[in-house]
Design a protein around this nucleic acid. Structure first.
Lengths: 150, 150
DNA sequence: CTTGACCCTCCCATGATGGGAGGGTGGATA
DNA sequence: TATCCACCCTCCCATCATGGGAGGGTCAAG
């Protein structure tokens, strides 16, 4: 299988397939004489594992750990569970941050008449001297949102 | 006020203050003879506006629009509200994606006994041939999460 | 007049992703 | 067989918001 077919089979873009190889997330694909990468069914299975993990919001480093566990027949399921639950906590933190932002904004928007007049509580709040008025997040928070880029 | 004081007064890092200036989000600060940036109370107010907007998850480009509206005394509050609600929709989309991931992972974790045995439904699902088993997100989704970096 | 806390600019790194240039491969068709 | 087009290769650049650090200037207190 060439890289284009592998891309279709896994849902990972050609660019990303090369990138995952480059950063060592997956072992370098074999090469044909032409220099083209050649993917086996085993490779494809592994890459699908990677894509599903990405879909669940795991970062590449975490996926590397998951892959290790997956490939290690003697793993303890507890280790996998721990990794998964750690990630859940991370996702939940991000969700809480989003909730706060959404709540604040909806509250502000609800009180903005939204017509042609200039006075607007949204702007007033944003420029307020009151430190607590518009301030959810702002701690350490883990980076990242859910790309797919443009 | 020097940049360090401005940083404390606004909660924006020194690095970011310079960056916001560089990308044109805010007007270049005046300079003392020494070359040091000098911030007025007006500058500080504007920067606080910026920080609050960031806290609400607005991207820099959106903040530029908000600033324009803020500074335009003849704005229509409807424009502000539209911007805010567009952003809310964006945040809600991200939240939905997070919810799906969290839901899927919690479900999987719940069915993983999490002991020293190797069999684990989390890994099984991630490597499954079943396309639907672990697949929330994966559409266009707007970039970004909530930095503050490390 | 030294010391240390600031400030300046410039460059690099991050993470995951895409874009594109410049050039080679491979198979089908004229 | 010559040609064409889709595909592949590598290498470099951009994104977005953020921090790190080097190399060097400024300022105020001791």
């Amino acid at each position: 299988m060439n890289i284009g077919e592998a891309s279709k089979a896994t849902g990972i873009s050609v660019k990303m397939l090369r990138y995952y190889e480059e950063i060592g997330l997956v072992r370098p694909a074999l090469r044909a004489y032409s220099g083209y990468r050649v993917y086996s069914d085993k490779n494809i299975a592994m890459l699908r594992f990677v894509r599903r993990s990405r879909d669940l919001g795991f970062q590449v480093k975490q996926i590397a750990s998951l892959l290790d566990l997956w490939l290690d027949g003697s793993r303890a399921s507890a280790d996998v569970k721990t990794l998964a639950l750690d990630h859940v906590r991370d996702l939940e933190l991000r969700r809480r941050e989003l909730d706060e932002m959404i709540g604040t904004l909806q509250h502000l928007a609800r009180h903005c008449h939204g017509d042609s007049r200039p006075d607007c509580p949204i702007l007033t709040s944003l420029s307020s001297d009151d430190e607590a008025s518009a301030k959810p997040a702002r701690k350490k928070a883990s980076r990242r949102g859910f790309a797919v880029a443009g």
